[in-house]
Design a protein around this nucleic acid. Structure first.
Length: 440
RNA sequence: UCCCCGAUAGCUCAACGGUAGAGCAUCUGACUGUUAAUCAGAGGGUUCGUGGUUCGAAUCCACGUCGGGGAGCCA
């Protein structure tokens, strides 16, 4: 049963032959003398409504004439299958009720530049492609949480206002916090979610995270959403297995439920259909060697020495060797976060991995096995020049019932950009926050 | 923070040292099958700002503002 008195356009096929009332906005209008075509959008779908002058009252035809792009209205008419209609069904209009008339809607069906569209982001979300993309975002978020819930994970929310830097070095957004000095917006929920892991075993946090880095690329936002699972008694290999199942499940569910939106975005579905476990795995050492032999395949890609981190060109080169996402594992500890567990066979590398999306969309997951030994963790905190006092609670997790554990974080916007085939990350979130954009 | 590029009608762009232009949108009129309808007509400009070069600047130069692409950093 519907919560509203009006019919949802998405279910219009169920009403063929019946008279219904639809509520929505005029997406487009074509006048042809005594015949008017109204493309009505209600959020669920669109349908073409046909107004014939001789079939309706004078008042009704006048109302239809007054409607402009994005005017709101209620339209009553008969549902009829018609091959001439874009969606296969159209509405034979009997009555038009105007709810509000829109004047001078800024976004016409013609082309626009990025600056103009971003300035009108609050209206741009009504456009077909943005609508499809944000539906896919919602599906990715729902799929991620529901898959984890089905695996016995508990959502464990972590704070956004924190007293210190979680990972120390990166730039943070700060704000005054009453008499307690500075507070910072979280750049990850990971440390806190480890507390939940010791309580519930399998947990995840999901929320916005903030990076005050002056990144200016199509892969970066200053505010982005991250989902971070954390599992007790899970080692590095368990972690990678979890990640490839998680990512595959999300992709397959989007293919299953949002194929119409992927079609609107003209996304090639074949690469997505291949996203099933197992994903290829490459050690950091193997990646260095691959770059040495194949760096000429990507412009601007130069060989790097052991101990250096990869740049964007290196990631592109590595990702394009495979037809599905690829793990790069066991990075040098020196270039990774302080909490990552060293490989017992090679203490100079960490039991961590980055997952690079296929088709050159870059890193979508970063994860690791965490240090569970309190002595080692405390030493690492000191080595990184961090305050033991700030991490007292985090060290407590290792003092009381410590166990090996692993986890990872997936950036929602990068995953959505990859799955939807969207070049720029800014379109994958309703209101992107970037270096030079805080409005609307 | 660094490198590259851009700003002209509501929008997308042209004019590149000599009278400010087009398409779309808007308004008026015609049209019973349009899918970004078509046809006819009309209105619409502080060429981002400040200074400079020049007989003359949208055009060349400097600085500034806003924005776009990329690097680094990362998800």
């Amino acid at each position: 049963m519907s919560l509203l008195a009006t019919t949802s356009i998405a279910t219009i096929a169920d009403y063929a032959g019946q008279t219904v009332t639809l509520s929505g906005w005029i997406h487009n209008k074509t006048e042809k003398g005594k015949l008017i075509f109204l493309m009505l959008r209600d959020g669920s779908a669109m349908i073409q409504c046909v107004v014939f002058k001789k079939n309706v009252s004078e008042a009704c035809f006048a109302h239809a004439q007054q409607l402009t792009q994005e005017s709101a209205c209620r339209i009553t008419g008969g549902v009829r299958a018609d091959s001439r209609a874009p969606s296969g069904y159209e509405l034979d209009v009997q009555d038009v009720e105007i709810v509000s008339i829109t004047e001078d809607y800024p976004i016409s069906p013609k082309e626009h530049g990025v600056e103009f569209l971003m300035e009108h982001r609050h209206l741009w979300v009504r456009s077909s492609k943005q609508h499809a993309l944000l539906r896919i975002r919602a599906e990715v978020i729902a799929a991620a949480q529901e898959w984890l819930n089905a695996q016995g994970f508990i959502r464990f929310d972590t704070p956004i206002l924190t007293a210190t830097a979680a990972e120390g070095t990166t730039n943070l957004f700060g704000t005054d916090y009453f008499d307690l000095g500075r507070a910072y917006l979280a750049q990850t929920g990971q440390l806190y979610v480890e507390s939940g892991m010791m309580s519930f075993g399998k947990v995840y946090c999901f929320g916005p995270t903030f990076r005050a880095e002056k990144s200016k690329t199509r892969r970066h936002l200053t505010e982005f959403w991250m989902i971070e699972p954390e599992v007790a008694f899970a080692d590095h290999d368990d972690n990678l297995a979890l990640q490839e199942q998680f990512v595959s499940a999300i992709v397959q569910r989007v293919l299953e439920r949002r194929s119409e939106d992927l079609r609107v975005l003209e996304r090639d579905l074949e690469p997505l259909k291949r996203i099933v476990p197992p994903f290829p795995r490459l050690s950091y050492d193997e990646a260095i060697e691959l770059i040495r032999t194949k760096h000429h395949e990507v412009e601007g890609c130069l060989p790097i020495a052991w101990g250096e981190d990869f740049g964007a060109a290196h990631e592109t080169l590595i990702a394009q060797q495979f037809d599905r996402p690829v793990f790069i594992e066991r990075f040098p500890s020196a270039i990774k976060a302080f909490y990552m567990q060293p490989d017992p066979n090679r203490p100079e590398v960490a039991l961590c991995a980055d997952l690079l999306a296929s088709e050159g969309y870059g890193e979508i997951i970063g994860g690791s096995q965490r240090i569970h030994d309190p002595v080692l963790l405390e030493a690492r905190i000191r080595e990184h020049g961090l305050s033991i006092e700030d991490y007292r609670w985090y060290l407590d997790l290792r003092r009381y019932g410590t166990v090996p554990h692993s986890g990872f974080g997936m950036g929602i916007e990068r995953a959505v950009a990859w799955i939807s085939g969207t070049r720029h990350i800014r379109e994958t979130i309703p209101f992107p926050r970037q270096l030079y954009r805080l409005y609307p």
